[in-house]
């Protein structure tokens, strides 16, 4: 094979591999991204049940109900609307009433949310950025308030 031919082969192999990788990335992105929504957005957009979401807001004061075997119900609020969440599992260390939280799971037909993971950040001064933005939109959160 000539030098040119070999280089051509090499380059076409490279393009082939990168093409496959690009296709893979697009396919995977299409299938696996999860949107972030606040309770108000879900109420306003009439989000279809069954969609996978990340729900963010504050844990409503007095809403946490623990049953045995770590079944938990709580309400996520952003000041504008509430969303009841059901979760089976251990809550993270920093999960507290009145604190920011992100729950990932599925919106059910009865308007409640079934979470399969609950995140609270690992610093008590820190508010997840998405949650802070959602709360600002509802006017619950003021700029500069303990944002770190």
């Amino acid at each position: 094979m000539t030098r040119k031919g070999r280089r051509l082969l090499l380059i076409s192999c490279a393009i082939g591999v990168l093409g496959v990788a690009a296709g893979l990335v697009l396919f995977a992105l299409n299938d696996t991204i999860v949107f972030f929504r606040s309770p108000s957005e879900i109420a306003a957009e009439h989000t279809a049940p069954g969609s996978r979401l990340r729900l963010g807001g504050l844990v409503k004061d007095g809403s946490v109900m623990r049953q045995d075997n770590a079944h938990v119900r709580f309400t996520v609020t952003d000041g504008g609307a509430d969303m009841a969440v059901y979760y089976e599992g251990l809550l993270p260390d920093l999960f507290r009433e009145g604190q920011g939280v992100i729950a990932e799971g599925v919106l059910l037909g009865d308007g409640t949310f079934r979470a399969d993971s609950v995140l609270a950040k690992h610093d008590e001064k820190y508010m997840p950025k998405e949650v802070a933005d959602a709360l600002k939109k509802q006017g619950v959160w003021k700029e500069g308030e303990a944002t770190r």
Partner: peptide, 11 residues
């Protein structure tokens, strides 16, 4: 606001 989670990276 979206999240690209473990399924994407695993795949």
């Amino acid at each position: 606001k979206i999240t690209v989670g473990p399924p994407y990276f695993n795949l």
